[in-house]
């Protein structure tokens, strides 16, 4: 759980950093996209790796959850949490939201199934105009709303997940324990802020086609 999750977290961070290049203009962004496409073997290896990591993560999550549910067959009539964070208590929900969002995102921007109105044509340098596609997408308020909801799920999930994974991997040292505790919320905040910046910048017209 922790290892597969951390693998996905690393991907999410690089995904966000890569996408921030949208602020550099269409040439840089499309060039980045083309760079990735020019390496089909690493690209597909990464894609398959990611998918299987995600699948493993989900399977493990379902297994663990069902076992954990069995560990308490009769629920408490009254239940009050004292310390468990909202994020930690909603991991299954936020994970499910995230899964839906990722499916949508893949169908939308990777496979291009969701929004056929976006046109797939080359830019001035002959690269595929991914930039144009993204900018087109985030002018649609419904898509923006859906992406923002996805980011909420991502943020919640990450804020518990990262700290929790470090704990599961036994990272513990008195001087650094506060750092480890802060890691989850910090990573979540950075990733979500980065992603949301892209979405809102386009929606508010700060980044244009």
């Amino acid at each position: 759980m922790a290892l597969s999750g951390l693998g996905l977290v690393i991907y999410v961070i690089f995904h966000m950093l890569g996408n921030l290049q949208v602020f550099e203009g269409p040439l840089v962004f499309n060039g980045y996209a083309a760079l990735l496409r020019d390496m089909p073997i690493p690209l597909w290896a990464a894609r398959i790796g990611l998918l299987s990591l995600a699948a493993l993560h989900i399977v493990l999550a379902i297994q663990l959850t069902s076992r954990n549910r069995q560990a308490r067959p009769i629920a408490y009539a009254v239940r009050e949490y004292r310390q468990a964070s909202f994020a930690s208590r909603t991991m299954a929900t936020s994970g499910f939201v995230l899964l839906l969002f990722i499916l949508f995102h893949l169908l939308h921007l990777t496979a291009g199934v969701i929004d056929p109105s976006s046109v797939d044509r080359p830019d001035v340098e002959g690269h595929r105009d991914v930039y144009g596609k993204v900018v087109h997408a985030f002018q649609n308020p419904f898509i923006v709303a859906f992406y923002l909801a996805g980011q909420l799920g991502l943020g919640l999930h990450l804020s518990h997940a990262v700290t929790s994974s470090l704990q599961t991997l036994g990272l513990e040292y008195v001087a650094f324990n506060r750092l480890f505790k802060a890691a989850g919320p910090t990573v979540a905040l950075v990733v979500v802020l980065g992603n949301v910046a892209i979405i809102l910048a386009i929606f508010l017209g700060l980044v244009r086609g």
Binding site: L64, R67, N68, Q70, A71, R72, Y81, R82, Q83, A84, S85, S88, R89, M91, H160, T163, S164, L166, Q167, T168, L169, G170, L171, E172, V174, N177
Partner: peptide, 29 residues
């Protein structure tokens, strides 16, 4: 037939001896 730790730290909050969850990290290590 116990469940597995989800690192919610609710245990630490109710422990009458205030035992720290850092010992769970040490257990994992």
């Amino acid at each position: 037939g116990f469940g597995s730790c989800g690192n919610q730290n609710e245990c630490e909050a109710v422990c009458p001896k205030r035992i720290s969850v850092r010992f769970i990290a040490i257990l994992n290590r």
